[in-house]
């Protein structure tokens, strides 16, 4: 079963590439819009020169916004999740902000912080912090109340309750939040770069699209997609390992 599935997966991908090549070569689609795979493969050769510098920039922005956004999100999530009154007051606001398309705030951020590094970073942090807060709040509120009650009854201080009970018990959801956070910060950085920016992968992709350099655009898109998939798979394995150790 497993072997047949892997075989079928490879077969599907190969079939897609062959059909794609055929319809372009036979002239059903204009190669200006859909380049044949052979041409895309050819532009992979020039890819390092094309995306070297923008890639480094986008990576820096993503990691920075991930560090700030997830750190802030986890701290706020633990704080808000553990306070009943605080949670009831603030949760509708947080969830409301989370559930609207956050990109509508991007023009305002650009107006205040200017085009470039600062606005991209601010937007990506905003993009990361909200889902992280929501997941961590969920994890903290799911902590068994009896554990906390027991810790209080044996004389644990407030710091001990947080570090020895709440945070270890909420660890799986914190890891899940981190996994989602890195994808969200990459998404935020790419959106901000595509909207208004002068450098980075997002800017490069938008530029290639407007310049009709479709083969190069395909190569960059595939490259970014593969990187995102690899990050997500690695973090998924990490999450599984942490989960096993917990049990």
């Amino acid at each position: 079963m497993r072997k047949i599935a892997v075989f079928l997966q490879i077969g599907t991908i190969a079939a897609v590439i062959v059909i794609w090549e055929e319809i372009v070569v036979k002239g059903f689609v204009d190669p200006l819009f859909l380049p044949p795979p052979s041409q895309v493969l050819y532009s992979f050769a020039t890819l390092p020169a094309l995306i070297g510098l923008p890639f480094y920039e986008t990576l820096t922005k993503t990691l920075l916004s991930f560090a700030v956004g997830s750190g802030l999100g986890i701290a706020l999530g633990i704080l808000i999740g553990s306070g009943i009154f605080l949670h009831d007051v603030l949760y509708p606001y947080i969830f409301g902000l989370y559930s609207i398309p956050r990109m509508i705030f991007l023009p305002l951020i650009v107006l205040f912080l200017g085009i470039g590094f600062n606005s991209t970073l601010f937007y990506a942090v905003l993009h990361t912090v909200l889902p992280v807060i929501i997941i961590v709040i969920g994890g903290v509120r799911a902590v068994d109340k009896r554990l906390i009650l027991y810790a209080v009854s044996v004389g644990a201080t407030l710091t001990q309750i947080y570090t020895k009970v709440i945070i270890p018990a909420a660890l799986p959801s914190i890891i899940a939040a981190l996994r989602l956070g890195i994808i969200f910060s990459l998404l935020g950085v790419l959106i901000a770069e595509m909207y208004l920016s002068l450098s980075g992968i997002g800017f490069l992709m938008q530029k290639l699209s407007f310049a009709f350099r479709s083969a190069d655009l395909f190569a960059v898109t595939i490259c970014v997609a593969v990187i995102a998939i690899v990050i997500s798979v690695l973090l998924g394995e990490f999450q599984k390992k942490i989960g096993e150790r917990q049990i």
Binding site: M205, S209, F218, S232
Partner: peptide, 16 residues
């Protein structure tokens, strides 16, 4: 795997 890709990556291609 496709779901894990930041969706906005596809947008320039779609514009094209």
């Amino acid at each position: 795997a496709l779901y894990a890709v930041p969706s906005v990556v596809w947008y320039p291609l779609l514009l094209l």
